[in-house]
Amino acid sequence: MSTTTTRGVARPAPAKASQGRPRRALRGSPAFNFWLFTGPFLIGLVIFVFVPIGWSVWLSFFDARFTVTPSRFIGFDNYTSMLKNSNFTGSLVTFTVFAALIVPLTWALSLGLALLVHRLRFMRAFFRSVFFLPTAVSYVAAALIWKMSVFTGVRFGLMNTVLGWFGVDNIAYLSDPNPPWYWLVIVTVRLWLQAGFYMILFLAALQNIPPELYEAAAIDGAKPGWQTFRYITLPQLRATSTAVILLLLIAAYQAFDEFFNIITTRATWGQTPLMVLYKTALGENQDYGAGSAGAVILTLLICVVTLFQGRIMGFGRGEESK
């Protein structure tokens, strides 16, 4: 395909570098060079990632309340208590629902925005920036705006004011989980925050589609609009879509900020696993054993899901097997 040229452009570096005179010492010992470059990163990784993970696994087998250096071994008690904890199991459902809502919605919205902006003949840079700007807003700040001004339950909240014009009663979006209005708040805030970023990714991919394809399609009689979108644009965006969906899933897994700030602290619903673990381990309960057990369970789940997903999407497989 015509796009192979871009591949060549993307990786010219190694050929050039090997020609010039090697700089002092950098050739001398490959082992030294290896450690010079990977060492700092590795040290950081060990101190901030591997040690805490190991420590956490160790803690999960102890009665570690109000201490991270416990002495009483309790076997799998923490694991059974976490698995029996309805808040924890419920949180797994919550974030599955969250991912099921936010991933397709963001995908569709950011693709839609990208298509619109891509079509613009003037002020394209302006609209690109406008839609991208929310990405720069902090999740906490946005969550608080959503909670305290857009979706407050009082009569002067933005949504309730608008609904009031149509004679609808004030709605308590967050306190009352029946019906679960809190999803509206949680999903819209993240949609607003992240759609612009993924729009940029789609825009870049759209600009990468060679115009010859559309010309050829037009000659073959494809109608502009849905037909070209369905049979040319969408297939050409497949790789970007896969990456976007993967990134969205990872972001959904990590959701914490907006849930923590929007859902009232004492709710038993609308909790992501991280929130439940935070409350168990670092909140008022300070049960590091149970919290660590939950973290290990969650890690195992994420491993299983990632492997499964890699199977389906082929992400991380060698180039040649694609």
Partner: peptide, 22 residues
Amino acid sequence: MSAMSNSNFSRRSLFRAAAGMA
């Protein structure tokens, strides 16, 4: 396909971002 260079790019930038964050 253009897709490949795309995914290369995003993987590399992801790694760079991770290193930056570390």
